[in-house]
Every structure is written in structure tokens, then in C-alpha cells.
């Protein structure tokens, strides 16, 4: 959608990922696994805000009107959610790759960790897509999105950090029930977005 029309914003996000991770590479040398994990998720959070915020804010008024006339709000919000999920999943994998390249690889269980990164990227993108829709309607910049989004995302981020912390130690295992809880939370977000978006849509 938007990224195909405005390719510079897509490359902008790529550059953002590269630049932040390079700054981290300059700032710290071979961090411990706990620090690595914390940094990784914080960077994920900021990537997500930058990548997803654009999805609603840069749509011009005329184009929104055009979408309004051709698509139902449910279809529109679902397509946005799917697109942003895919975008964020790609970005997550990319930042994981760069992290292991620049900052070393303390991960012991690569498979589960990658799974968690995918799940986490998906959760982040869902929450921030919807908040971007709210912020765009309020005609505000990305700052209000951070204000709105951080408190909501903190619990999920804590869960993700806890879960992925287990991937750095040979003894701990990742509890399945918590992962399922995150998946359930994501399903809840999709449901809420579908129910609530039509109210934002009308202008």
C-alpha cells in the first residue's frame, strides 16, 4: 500500500534499523545476555513506532476519502493490520540479524527465540497500528502515539522479555501457557480493532 507508493519511507525504516544498531555497536562492546535482551526489545519497540506510525499518518485526506468510498472499514483495518504485521515481522528478522552480527550472539536456543521475535513483532505491530489510527484521527504527531502506546505495551513487553530471557539460559524452559496468553491477547487486539475502527472511520 503506502510503502509501495512511497518507497523512501520503507528505505527510511531500513536505514533507521541500521543506524540505531550501529550506534549501539559503538556504544557498548559485547553486552551480557540480559543487557542484550533488554536492548533488543527496546529497539524493536522504537522500530515498530517508526515503521507503523507512518501507515495512517502519511495517508493524505483525499486518499482516505477514496478508500472510504471503495472499501468497508473492517476490510480496510484488516488489510492495514496484515500489512503492518508482515512489515514488522520482516523488520524484526532484519534487526535480529544485525544484532547477532554486531553485538555477538548470546542466544542458546535459536529456534524458540526466533519464534518469540516473530510473535513479539506481530504483537507490537497490531497494537501500534490501531494506536496510529487513533493518533492520525487526532491529527497529532508520533509523540502522542508514544504517550498512548507505551503504557499499553509495557505489560506485553515485560512478558516478552521474561520469555525470551529463558532462551539465554540452558536450564530455563519457555512456558507454553504464557506464549498462548500472548497469542490470545493478540487475537483480542484484532477483535477490538475490527469492532472499534468503524467509529474512527467516519469523519
Amino acid at each position: 500500500m503506502l510503502e509501495l507508493r512511497q518507497q523512501y519511507s520503507f528505505y527510511g525504516i531500513l536505514l533507521y534499523i541500521g543506524a540505531t544498531i550501529f550506534v549501539l555497536f559503538m556504544a557498548i562492546d559485547g553486552p551480557e545476555s540480559a543487557v542484550w535482551n533488554g536492548l533488543f526489545w527496546v529497539i524493536q519497540l522504537f522500530i515498530c513506532i517508526n515503521a507503523v506510525a507512518k501507515s495512517f499518518m502519511q495517508e493524505s485526506r483525499g486518499r482516505m476519502l477514496y478508500f472510504y468510498s471503495i472499501a468497508s472499514p473492517t476490510a480496510f483495518v484488516l488489510s492495514k493490520l496484515i500489512f503492518n504485521s508482515l512489515l514488522m515481522i520482516i523488520m524484526s528478522m532484519l534487526s535480529l540479524l544485525l544484532f547477532t552480527m554486531f553485538l555477538g550472539n548470546p542466544i542458546l536456543k535459536a529456534g524458540p527465540f526466533i519464534g518469540l521475535v516473530l510473535l513479539g513483532g506481530w504483537s507490537l505491530s497490531l497494537v501500534f497500528s490501531f494506536l496510529a489510527a487513533i493518533a492520525a484521527k487526532a491529527q497529532q504527531n508520533a509523540a502522542i502515539m508514544a504517550v498512548l502506546g507505551f503504557p499499553i505495551i509495557i505489560p506485553q513487553l515485560i512478558l516478552l522479555m521474561r520469555l525470551s530471557g529463558a532462551a539465554f539460559s540452558p536450564l530455563l524452559s519457555i512456558p507454553t501457557s504464557t506464549v498462548l496468553m500472548l497469542v490470545a491477547l493478540d487475537a483480542l487486539i484484532i477483535l477490538l480493532a475490527v469492532i472499534l475502527f468503524p467509529f474512527l472511520w467516519k469523519d
Binding site: 497494537v127 487513533i134 498512548l148 503504557p151 499499553i152 505489560p155 512478558l159 491477547l185 483480542l188
Partner: peptide
């Protein structure tokens, strides 16, 4: 939206 996400968490 916030309430529905917040309270479960």
C-alpha cells in the same frame, strides 16, 4: 481499547 488490553495484562 486501553481498558480491554490493560486489565487482562
Amino acid at each position: 481499547f486501553a481498558y480491554a488490553i490493560l486489565f487482562p495484562s
